[in-house]
Each structure stands twice: as structure tokens, then as C-alpha cells.
Computed example of a mutant assay.
Amino acid sequence: MMHTSRDTAPDEASGSTRKNGLTVRGVRASRGGSLIIDGADLSAPRARITALLGPNGAGKSTLLHAIAGTSPASFTTLTHGDGDLLRMPRRSRAQVVAFVEQEPATPDSIRVRELVTLGRLPHDGMWAASGDDHPAVQRGIRLTEANELAERTYASLSGGEKQRVQLARAIAQEPRLLLLDEPTNHLDIRAQLRTLALLRRLAHDGTTVVAALHDLGLAAAHADHVVVMADGGVFAQGAPADVLTPALLREIWGVHADVLTNPTTGRTVLALSLEGASVGR
């Protein structure tokens, strides 16, 4: 199996779009004392949704933590637009990059509005504590439809509701690069689609969105760009229709795939099954 990145087709994210997006070169990252990612290269186009894909243990979460600066890692290059993230002070980097983790450490007693307001800390510092009327805070709550949750404590929320308010906090941060680790986890299908529609809106407004996803069907249907990780590196990246081929899905995930086209949207649809498995009787 290959360990280095290969572009499977010309990337639509060329020119200024690609230039102003995320560029990662030579990333090496460890977790728990073990080297997880060894020299991976990838890019994510600006104002587009990039899906980070791969089997369990491929290094998706580790990569997101490395880019966000929340775990030790080394890079040859880490830039977004014209900004060198490696040279930025921590606060400046937090003004550019927001990270929505799967299970962030959050005080149970904090109220939702207060939590969303903390997204302003990189910009407003200590004054963020009294900034719940900031337009960005109100926008985060409104876009995630969290108004009815605003006065509740974090501990009282369901898993899906927690996902929504963590995304609201990230929106309040007004990042140019938004990283998300399994943002559709804990959500039913309607909530998943609403979340992906919101990410589409954020991308349309100019945000570079990079989301680790397990659901290949959602990635094929909603991402503009996909990065497939395997064995500590980037195996392939490019447009979903070019990357998510039957051969790649068989090699990386060990599944059979029929790749179809949605007659309404024109996007890729994946019909997946176990190789050699009988269907029905």
C-alpha cells in the first residue's frame, strides 16, 4: 500500500483558490508515544469543503489536532492563504483556525450562551466573558438553531445538541480555516444533512472547511475535495468522483463499490457492499 500522496486527477481547486487554501507539507505527528503520521502532504482549497477520510486508526484526528496546534507535531510547511501558521503567535493562530473536536473538555455547568461566547476569546480576550451580544456570537447561535438551548447547561444537552453548540462556538470565533472531527457523529440523518448544509454555507462565505468523516456516502455527496489517509500518510486526494473509485475503495476499505451519479444533483453516489457477500435470498 502506498504511503505518499498522489493526486488522482487535475484539481479543480487551482489558481487563486488553491493558493489561498490550506497547504500541509511533511507533517509528522505522534500520539501516546507512537508515530501516527509520517511525512504526509495535503492541501484543502479555500472556500470549499474538504473531507478527510480513512479507516479507523489512519490518523485523521491526529492530523486535525496537529494542524490546530493542540498536539505536538512537526511540519515542513503549514500555511493558510498568505499566512504561515507555524510562525504565528498562539492567539493570532486562533484567530485564523477553529477546531471542533469530537469530545472537547467542557465544564458541565457552563451555559450554552457562555460557551459560544468563549469563541470570541482569541479576538476580544478577557472582555469575551461579557460579549454575549456580539454579532458573531448571535450568528453562531442562529446558524446552528441553538436559540432554544442558549440558557441550558452543557451537561443537560444530548450528544447531538453538544455538537451544535460546539459548532456555534467555532462560528463565533470567525475562523478562516474550520477543522471538524466527525461533525455528523451523534446526529440523525436530518441533523447530519442540516450540518453539512451549514458547512456549505460557511464555505460559500469564504471559510476553508476540513472535516474528518466516516460516512463515505456523505463525503461523496457533499465534499468538494477529499483526502484519503492510510498507513500514516495520504494515499490520494482530489475531487470525490476522481478519488473514490471502486479500486481505491476496495484497496483501502476492503469493500465493493458501485459508483453512481445522483440524477438531481449530479454528485457521486456510492453503493457499498462486502465483496463476495450475498444480498438477499
Rank of each mutant, 00 (worst) to 15 (best):
Q95P: 03
L274P: 00
L85R: 14
Q192L: 08
G69I: 10
R267K: 14
T76M: 09
R6D: 02
Q95K: 15
G280W: 01
L42N: 12
D82M: 10
A191K: 11
N147K: 12
L199D: 06
L22H: 08
V24G: 08
D188C: 09
R164K: 14
L244C: 00
L202F: 04
N56E: 11
D215M: 07
Q166N: 15
Q138E: 13
H225F: 02
L178E: 09
A13K: 04
L218W: 02
R164I: 00
P72F: 03
L64D: 07
V27M: 11
V209T: 10
K19C: 00
L52G: 09
T153W: 01
L52H: 11
V228A: 13
D7N: 13
A211P: 04
G238L: 03
H65M: 10
S92I: 02
A13Y: 03
A146G: 05
A197K: 13
E151M: 05
S130H: 08
R93V: 06
D11V: 13
L52C: 06
R281C: 02
V255M: 12
G83K: 15
A277T: 07
A40T: 05
M1Q: 10
A220W: 00
R87A: 15
A146D: 05
S130K: 13
R152I: 01
A40E: 05
V234M: 06
G26Y: 13
M229S: 12
A73R: 12
G276Y: 07
L198Q: 12
L143P: 01
R142I: 09
Q102C: 01
E275R: 11
L248E: 05
S43V: 15
I37K: 11
R31K: 07
R18F: 06
R113E: 03
R90L: 14
A230I: 01
L218S: 02
A220P: 01
A271P: 06
L270Q: 02
E161G: 01
T265Q: 03
D41R: 14
R194Y: 03
R250K: 10
G21H: 10
E12L: 15
G206L: 13
R200K: 14
G159T: 06
G83W: 10
A128W: 03
